[in-house]
């Protein structure tokens, strides 16, 4: 079952970063994602919206194979990044996750210093040749995470001692420190207050310069604010996928319209 009409999409084939075809996800016997086709563009923010339990987070976690850690979860179909099938036998999920970074719903800094939080990824991937190199990566990442000015004097302080919004920006900085190509964000602002949310949103907009960003959100306003493309999921189906402006002003599917006008969800 594929509900999004192809004709409505205005996708430049040159820029496609991730392409998913006929993706099925099963949790044990539950069919959580049904037949999803989706192309995610480079240097674009793509938002996944939909009611709770519609499968948007599950689909997001397929993109860096985080679902591998769940025993009962089974993924079928093709997902490729830059034309390479990420579910191929030869692909090491660890290598994939270095390429596809992730920011989680709840800020989850390591219980270590701010410096070590950022430096951990570059260290295990051998991105820094020496201490000065590492210092530079840490500073650059914290600047990208728009948190450098707040923490530059206390890099030795524990990351868990920061406020919720700062922690989430620290996690974003940690994710960009490994220089991924795609950044997945699973409801990154759901635990944040409006001020922290707007800071993170600004940050997402800046990150678009270099990355393909995929964000799952419950807030339609947020999707409208930060994304260029929006995908609407409902009961495991990708109902509609297209330019954000079009989805919010002139949806094709009646379910999309019901959701964005607040009748379902």
């Amino acid at each position: 079952m594929y509900d999004a009409p192809h004709t409505e999409r205005d996708v430049d084939q040159q820029d496609i970063k991730i392409s998913a075809r006929k993706v099925q996800v099963y949790y044990g016997t539950t069919h959580a994602i049904k037949d999803v086709d989706c192309d995610i563009e480079d240097k674009t923010v793509t938002a996944f919206i939909g009611p709770s339990g519609c499968g948007k987070s599950t689909f997001l976690r397929c993109l860096n194979r985080m679902n591998d850690t769940i025993d009962v979860c089974r993924v079928e179909g093709d997902i490729s990044i830059d034309g390479e099938d990420i579910y191929d036998k030869r692909v090491d999920p660890v290598q994939l996750r270095a390429k596809v970074g992730m920011v989680f719903q709840k800020p989850n800094p390591f219980p270590k210093s701010i410096y070590d939080n950022i430096a951990y990824g570059p260290r295990i991937h051998g991105l820094a040749k020496n201490k000065a190199d590492l210092d530079e990566i840490v500073e650059k990442s914290l600047r990208r995470g728009a948190i450098w000015d707040e923490v530059k004097d206390r890099l030795d302080a524990p990351g868990t001692g920061l406020s919720g919004g700062q922690q989430q920006r620290l996690c974003i900085a940690r994710a960009v420190a490994t220089e991924p190509e795609v950044l997945l964000m699973d409801e990154p602002c759901s635990a944040l207050d409006p001020i922290a949310t707007s800071q993170v949103e600004e940050l997402i907009d800046e990150l678009r310069q270099d990355y393909s960003v995929v964000i799952v959100t419950h807030s339609m306003q947020q999707a409208a604010r930060v994304s260029q493309k929006t995908a609407f999921f409902h009961l495991g189906n990708l109902v509609e996928f297209g330019d954000t402006g079009k989805i919010f002003t002139n949806p094709v599917d009646s379910r999309t319209e019901s959701y964005i006008t607040g009748r379902i969800g």
């Binding site: 996750r97 970074g101 992730m102 390591f110 951990y120 991937h125």
Partner: peptide, 14 residues
């Protein structure tokens, strides 16, 4: 907490 494992896996730790 599982979030710590997620965080480590998320930055590409084995």
């Amino acid at each position: 907490p599982p979030s710590i494992r997620d965080a480590a896996l998320g930055v590409g730790a084995s």
